[in-house]
Design a binder for these strands. Structure first.
Lengths: 119, 119
DNA sequence: CTCAATACCGAATAATTTTTCGGTTACCGA
DNA sequence: TCGGTAACCGAAAAATTATTCGGTATTGAG
């Protein structure tokens, strides 16, 4: 298992929050769950650009952090559903605002942004 | 200059927002500016754990994105100040909530979080 | 002229995260 | 038994991001 080498400031709220839901696809996963895509296969289809593998991994981390909960029912075909926990629901207003901010200001940002070279 | 290789979904608000202020030290920098640490040397002292180099780089990116503004006055010693732009101020409520969330739930997260192995 | 302070930048390297690829298991239907 | 769907996992490789190290420039004091 991977061992982190650089220390982290776990007193810093930003650092903690970013660890929990700041990974590349975590906010998208949480948003997808909120919009009703609860099954892994649905999320795989919904979130273009992410490989199923990374979604599985980040979903598992969200579960381990107590943000989402897995409900699996035996049967065919396999049926697994992820839902937000109470803790997970406390994050959603933040994700929503991040999303709104991005949509609201995207034109303003696009020109001149150093990271937008790849457009 | 670095050329991105994996495509990005620039219609997704989350992706856009994360590009603008989601880098490792950007929220900390913005928070520091808000708390009154406006000079690079102050931020270097304030934000432990980050190297001056990365703070300089991320500050420059924030400037290029139009989130902060640089005011430099000739004189001795060199005096540079970064302040939030109007656009930058629209981000602060989000950063504040991220920070609050992290502080509020840190104990809840700590146990069992996959990323907290390095504690 | 040399030194210290402030604000930077470039390039190589290291650290971290994401992707790619190829599995596994369980089950049903033909 | 073979093929197909769903949900996963491990390991290596690639991509991305951050760090380290060693510079530059300006200015004023000694």
């Amino acid at each position: 298992m991977y061992q982190r080498k650089t220390p982290e400031d776990l007193e810093c709220g930003i650092t903690i929050a970013m660890k929990v839901f700041g990974a590349k696809w975590k906010p998208c996963l949480l948003d997808a769950i909120q919009r009703g895509f609860r099954r892994p296969s649905e999320m795989h289809r919904e979130i273009k650009g992410a490989t199923p593998r990374v979604l599985d991994m980040q979903l598992r981390e969200l579960e381990t952090s107590g943000i989402v909960e897995k409900c699996q029912s035996a049967g065919f075909p396999l049926y697994t559903e992820y839902t937000l926990t109470d803790l997970g629901r406390t994050i959603m207003p933040i994700i929503d605002r991040i999303n709104e901010w991005g949509l609201q200001y995207k034109e303003l940002i696009a020109e001149g942004s150093p990271q937008s070279i790849s457009l």
